[in-house]
Design a protein around this nucleic acid. Structure first.
Lengths: 218, 218
DNA sequence: CCGAATCCGGCATGATACTG
DNA sequence: CAGTATCATGCCGGATTCGG
């Protein structure tokens, strides 16, 4: 029997489902695409293998994530968000941005793990869908040396896993503090570019598209 | 030394501060005005007095809430949100509405605690500030027999504590399931009124204002 | 190697009793 | 009213093991 706050309240109900330690970080991982058990273990150092298994089972039972079985030769199990899980992910964006503003230090500490997708989430969430229309491109973001891929297509921007065959239309290089400042809303993307904190290289048309998208952020 | 995920991520950082059991529910309580220690204990059955004290200390140390000392004759300590705490409250609204949609059953169970403010939060968050302009009124909502007060003034709507001297301009009566359906976005407020799920009584001008506000919700 | 289940020490939580 | 002290319980983290 699971522990419940037993209150008729959206927050208490949400926390009954996803309020336990690690659970929301598992959801965060799945927000950037399906992941294998081992991928999750690596992104979540300290979780303990049995706890992850238990969390995944709960999330599955609650309809937040589901397993999928990749066909051979990949032949592996992946976990992915259901529609309810995707909605949950979107509903977390303001909290993520609050955390960037109030809970994440300017500079990461020596032992702090950096996942470029984590900090890019706050950025992509601020993009204006109207500006994205007509753009079709794949951008490689290098955050503090760690690469992540952003795909803009059909008026939507998504972080996608690195693909062996993928070639970036442009590469954007910046450090973690800069992404955090932009993602949190503290700095506008344009200001960061003008301050020389962001380097963009690649196909000129793609760069122009990106600059236009940046102009709407902040 | 507090346990930390130690990840450069807005969500992980936020959870380092407010991810432990009960913490966000304390914040939720403070979202509807300053509260005394004993008020909190009563709204959070099961928390255990020492754990609440510990959580309040953490929230204070992290700049999310602060104590205030009421002057005599009230002569009592209250806890209230700081600016960062208010921001946190706002950032939780989408999660609260997700919870209303996916984690709260239609009908409360026999032991489920009902706090009218909890479920009204999802409603007030959807109000369109433009519609609120020019309205100055105090409305009494009776949710499943439990009263709560909504004050609309200066273009903003806030849940306020019951005041001995307060007199409602109108009283709205409805059940918990109806507020949840509206607050979650499943039903529009207008539809709920048309379906006879909501009863409104009071001053005719105040009722008209309220109906106009309702029309923007959903 | 992937995806777990098991065992165990330690810390967090919950209930009660007690104090200024 | 506003907490502190204490203690039983249960959850978490780490290591090990095990089947596919």
């Amino acid at each position: 029997m699971r522990r419940s706050y037993d209150q008729y309240c959206g927050l208490a109900g949400a926390l009954d489902l996803v309020g336990e330690r690690w659970t929301l970080l598992v959801v965060r991982e799945l927000m950037t695409g399906p992941k294998r058990y081992t991928d999750l273990i690596e992104s979540l150092p300290g979780i303990g293998t049995s706890l992850l298994a238990s969390r995944l089972k709960q999330l599955e039972a609650d309809g937040i994530c589901a397993r999928a079985y990749l066909p051979p030769p990949a032949a592996s199990t992946v976990y992915q968000l259901t529609d309810a899980g995707e909605e949950l992910g979107h509903s977390l964006m303001p909290l993520i941005r609050w955390g960037l503003r109030h809970a994440v230090p300017e500079q990461p500490g020596p032992d702090t793990l950096i996942g470029p997708e984590w900090v890019l989430l706050g950025f992509t969430h601020q993009l204006d869908p109207k500006t994205l229309g007509g753009i079709d491109g794949t951008y490689r973001f290098v955050v503090q040396g760690h690469p992540a891929w952003l795909q803009i297509r059909d008026g939507r921007a998504n972080l996608v896993p690195e693909g062996a065959d993928r070639r970036p239309d442009a590469t954007v290089t910046l450090d973690a503090a800069t992404v955090a400042a932009i993602g949190s809303g503290r700095t506008s993307a344009t200001d960061a570019v003008l301050a020389g904190k962001v380097s963009i290289e690649g196909d000129q048309a793609a760069i122009d598209d990106l600059i236009r998208v940046f102009a709407t952020v902040g």
